[in-house]
Design a protein around this nucleic acid. Sequence first.
DNA 1: CGCACCGGGTTCTGCCATTCAC
DNA 2: GTGAATGGCAGAACCCGGTGCG
Length: 380
Amino acid sequence: MAAVPGVRALFGLHRSGMLQRSFGVIPVQLASTCLPMRLCSSKLPVIRENEDLLQNLNLMGVDVRKARQRQPGVLRKPFTNEQGLARFLQRKGASLKVIASIISRYPRAITRSIEHMEQRWQLWRNIFQTDAEIVTILDRSPESFFRSSDNENLQKNISFLISLGLNTKDLHRLLTTAPRTFSNSLELNKQMLRFLEDICAELGGTNPEQFAKTIISRNLYILIRSTKRVRATINTLRTSLDLNDSELLTLLQGPGSEILDLSSEYLKNNFSHLELKTASLGCEKSEIKKLVISYPMILYIGTDTLNSKIDCLLKGGITIKQILEKPKVLEYSTQNITGRLVELKRVGYDFQKNGINILDCSRKRFVAKMEKLASPANSL
DNA sequence: CGCACCGGGTTCTGCCATTCAC
DNA sequence: GTGAATGGCAGAACCCGGTGCG
């Protein structure tokens, strides 16, 4: 719809005369929602969009088409609070552009009262230091803040997470990274906690509470996953790696926690690809198992990315055995690895003699190392 | 001092489906 | 039946530096 970007371009000018064309959408809406005659004549009113609201939203620069697609019911409400929402967010430091974007992506935001929003904001402020931090999250994910109208539930979630022994820093990271956690019903979060504790007990662990807390603080996404999904993932890990209870328990509360939120299909797929790839390069099954147990993050890497990284290392004169011993080099981007290999080749670096640890270090350290290698005093 | 080990930091929404409440 | 609330899903890395040891 050409009218929308046009209005957007005029954003802030408030020339309502230019908005007339936006009403062109109304007849279309009426036609598509028109009910059979017998219903039209009954006590049910014909539900149509609120024209004043549409005009307001257009003036504000909201992508009405997007909003309609997202939550059509909101546009039909007789009373909404878009002005109040805008003033509220502006006071918190949000730009008009951000506000428009928030409403476009989560229209229900305009149904919240000022009191509700202020209360919710204060609850978030218990965890965030500044309003600006919250505005950033809202811009990123409006739904996380506005989807639930239950502030009491939010308060209970915060208390619940604190009661697990998570500190302020954990909470901050959690709300920053996976804000949806705080909009989950308390019961859903508790369900996941119980699930994790049960897993621990099933595997013969002695401290289920600690186990669950460890997993949550090591994998902030876990509480926005379903128990079904996490169980499938755990089962996949157990089967793929052929682990007994205690091995699995160790893996889960150790490095394995980081990949616990991946889908089991993705995991299976990546695992079989890794097996194929390494087997074709002459690796034993036992070596692969050892690799994955010590460095499960390798299963996080998609098949194409993993391929290109391994190929580029091999091309640079590094052996697959060296990669298996120091899999952390795979954490660096292909671009980064490629660049370093070129530089190292230029100075004649010998990977067989010196190992490949030099690839696994920060940029600063790498540069410092290269300077030394390049100086005439240090000929390799 | 140099190196290797190791853990930590950042990061993850936007949509659809289902259930709930009226 | 309707809109609101809630649950669930697919998607898929990269980088830094403290510290302890030789």
